[in-house]
Design a binder for these strands. Structure first.
Lengths: 197, 197, 197, 197
DNA sequence: TATGAATGAGCATTCATTCAT
DNA sequence: GATGAATGAATGCTCATTCAT
């Protein structure tokens, strides 16, 4: 790679970085290409030199971001086969980048087909961890006999709901933090029938 | 009602019908008032004679649906207060206008503040029916001792999730139909600890 | 005049009355024909049955109103040949209907040609009173030798200025009241050279 | 400055020139941004590339004029502080762009709050020059003891009156030119008690 | 390769006036 | 004579994308 190509690569990465920042703050749909270029300190037109259009930019950004995330998450959840531990770790991860995940939860249905599939694919990897642990837990008689897929959808659907309406549930701070214990206890209740005290 | 009023009423309902079609097809956010007027065969300005603004038009359309739902459930509550029947009825009502509710689930976070508030208020009326039945069921020892609010959020979050990602879960046809029985049985499992057979 | 004509006459007067109210409150330019019809309790179209268009309505209203005003003012100013007394009386009259005069001062340049001429004609009648008193005062050596027309324009221009920017000079209450004494004393200073104390 | 910047500068000034023409002709309120773009031979959107909004365009145009005026007067004040010369200069500057100032005098009360504030602020700078000279003149015993604020309002109110009703005072040509000497002599009479000859 | 000026279709809403009833 | 539903032109502003420099 010669000097020119190197420079181009660098600019490209810079755009990606800045665009992500803007994206996290305002959502991709509400961020204009102009804003991104401005923040990145490049010409508006330069952006379209590196990315064919706005959609392509978002695909690239999230693709990269999701790669990092999902591997991070898999690391964490892979470390423990205890469902509650996994859930706690997962919620912690969400809380760390809550703004990003909140944007994602809200905007996902509006992303271009290709991106949506990619995101959902990675999402499904994480889901499958939970799915497996639940399934084997049921097999071991540890959990009640219910459909593991639906159980997982209840969990992720609920979390997704809290995230996407984040601004309604909390003024500032974290929705995940606010509802963490209730999410965990309610999900445990779904899986396990403790004796009523 | 004289001929004049009749004609106005007719125009109004015609607009509502066309607008709903367009909204269902393209979403509220991507449907312009111009498109609606064009499709309805009226002047653009006429639309604003019948509805103060685009938001009000949306509210009216959704109000009808949500009101129908709320009253349907209330009726049921008055007669039996059986949670499963309520849930079945609710899912049936969602299925009847699934495309519309799917649009709503996706777009709600992007509606202007006031519109969102109005819709969420109507929504909360329906939610409260479930909340009340669950709460009194817990009090009566019929359901397990869990937080009724969180239980309701699990239910509505999950349904919302299925609706908003509808096009991913099904090619054609109804997500609600596809997952109805699993939603019901899993939610029942959350509330009731049946003896494992 | 038969019953029908009588009724028509009555409606017409009613419209004029209501329109004036609205006009005083918001200015004619910012009052819609719809608002007037609504307030008057008549159909929107009826308004155009009695008045060819909005301009004609305003002409008629102000014409009538100005007739009353200017005769009232002439009465008052006619009673006294003392300039200060006349000025005080004039300012009192303005203060009584300050909202109306404020609207008039602001909007006059935008009224249709015909109306503007009428208003200015009536205005000039009042002016001529002041003009005459000043002129004879100068002749009698009572006032300084200056151009009476310009002196009058200074007075009316200043008053007009206070009225037209009324909302900037006072939050509520009267501009005339607020600046009355300064207007009077400064205008007297223009006409008379008192010995400096 | 390179070719690019030069071209932009040129376009910007072209817009300003055309906009001023249109404004002077039809008033600010009755000139549409579309008209300006059309006349200037640019795309409608281009106008908003150079000026954030219509109000800013107006402000810029008036700023130029008012700034010119204010600095011209300030220059003079720095050299001689002679009130009559200041007034002559001020009237000359008004006369140079009389059509524009006439529009301004008429329309100011109808401008949106913020725009009005900005213009009045600039205006008050000019006014303050007169105020200061009068005040210190009074202190020096050169002028009579009267309220300087009201004196200034008499001057500006009167000039404003002539300008706003310009079309009534003159068919063609300049109101300022027509009444210049009378305005000056009458205002001098207000400030100074010359011995009657 | 990078620039950034220019584009122009697109949008919700207002309001005096008309005309069929 | 009265009604009031319908009209439709008009408006300020945004923003992804292009292309001459």
């Amino acid at each position: 790679m010669n000097k020119r190509q190197l420079q181009k690569q660098k600019t490209r990465e810079h755009i990606l970085k800045i665009a992500k920042q803007e994206f996290v703050e305002k959502g991709f749909l509400n961020t204009t290409t102009n804003q991104i270029a401005l923040q990145a300190g490049i010409a508006h037109g330069t952006l379209f030199l590196h990315f064919k259009n706005k959609d392509n930019l978002i695909v690239e950004i999230l693709d990269k971001e999701l790669e990092l995330m999902s591997s991070g998450i898999q690391d964490l959840v892979g470390r423990s086969a205890d469902l509650e531990q996994m859930l706690i770790l997962y919620l912690n991860l969400l809380e760390e980048d809550e703004k990003l995940f909140s944007v994602l939860a809200r905007e996902l249905p509006f992303y271009p087909e290709e991106l949506r599939r990619k995101i959902m694919f990675r999402d499904s990897l994480i889901r499958s961890h939970f799915h497996n642990v639940i399934e084997s837990g049921i097999g071991a008689g540890k959990y009640r006999k219910l459909d593991p897929s639906t159980a997982v959808t209840f969990l992720f659907g609920t979390i997704n709901y809290y995230l996407s309406l984040r601004s309604i549930f909390v003024e500032n701070g974290s929705v995940i933090a606010k509802f963490r214990s209730k999410i965990i206890s309610t999900f445990k209740a779904l899986l396990i029938c403790e004796k009523e005290k």
